[in-house]
Design a binder for these strands. Structure first.
Lengths: 125, 125
DNA sequence: ATATTACTCAACCAAACGGTTGAATGCAAG
DNA sequence: CTTGCATTCAACCGTTTGGTTGAGTAATAT
């Protein structure tokens, strides 16, 4: 039913949950870059960036082609498309559901025949 | 420009990166539930579910109203809307960028009018 | 009043994460 | 061959995470 064990989604959402990683993607959107030029733009160590790149790579969001001694990184938006589709689909479904509930409650509040409109004790703190 | 330090996005993407949490959201999409009824549907402990719910709550994805001794959880798709908007926006931008690059490369490879248009002597590899 | 139910909070654990430093590898030049 | 550059690998560290158990609290049921 609710196909909720999609490992690719885990990887992609996990990848873009980190602000540094989102920033790396943004830089890469401006064109291909090597790990070195990328690292120069960030306040963390070279190896730190290398690790982030590896995470993005595992999520399928960046691709690496080795040219001699440098690794050129390019963006691959395909998994992002999947992730966006999932999110959009569920968002729409959930919002529809909530809207229907709201409409139902509104109808309930002003019923045709009064008789048993009870209020549940509102607690809270 | 590349607004990449949005803590809410971190929370939301981090929340939906976990399959159990996505499953919880899916259950909640079917209507409100208490922590207990929720926990009964999952192979982990009650407290485990409780913790997941807390994460979702911190991301703003579920809301809790305390009715007596039970906590009723409802879905709040608003942050999901934000997240979907961000993802869709960036995805479109990145894909556009890549498409342009592709077009540029195609043009480079087979110029408009066959006849002259020699290559600049840039060796391949 | 006591027991039961519905939870949270606190402590703990192992694994993963984000980050560092210090090798080691592999390619390019002098 | 030696030096230097670009990069990964490996080890380590502190914090977060996903999970557990156990105790505590508040509301309901008996």
């Amino acid at each position: 039913m609710a196909r909720t064990a999609e490992p690719l989604l885990d990887q992609v959402y996990g990848a873009i949950a980190d602000p540094t990683r989102r920033a790396i993607l943004a830089v890469l959107a401006g064109g291909e870059a090597t790990v070195g030029t990328l690292a120069a733009r960030f306040p963390i160590s070279f190896n730190g960036v290398s690790k982030h790149v590896k995470v993005l790579e595992r999520a399928g969001l960046v691709q690496r082609t080795i040219h001699g001694r440098e690794h050129r990184l390019t963006l691959n938006p395909t998994p992002l498309r999947e992730a966006a589709r999932w999110l959009e689909h569920y968002r729409a479904f959930w919002e529809m559901r909530l809207d229907r509930l709201e409409a139902f409650l509104a109808k309930q509040q002003r019923p045709t025949a009064p008789g048993r409109a009870r209020q549940t004790g509102k607690g809270g703190r």
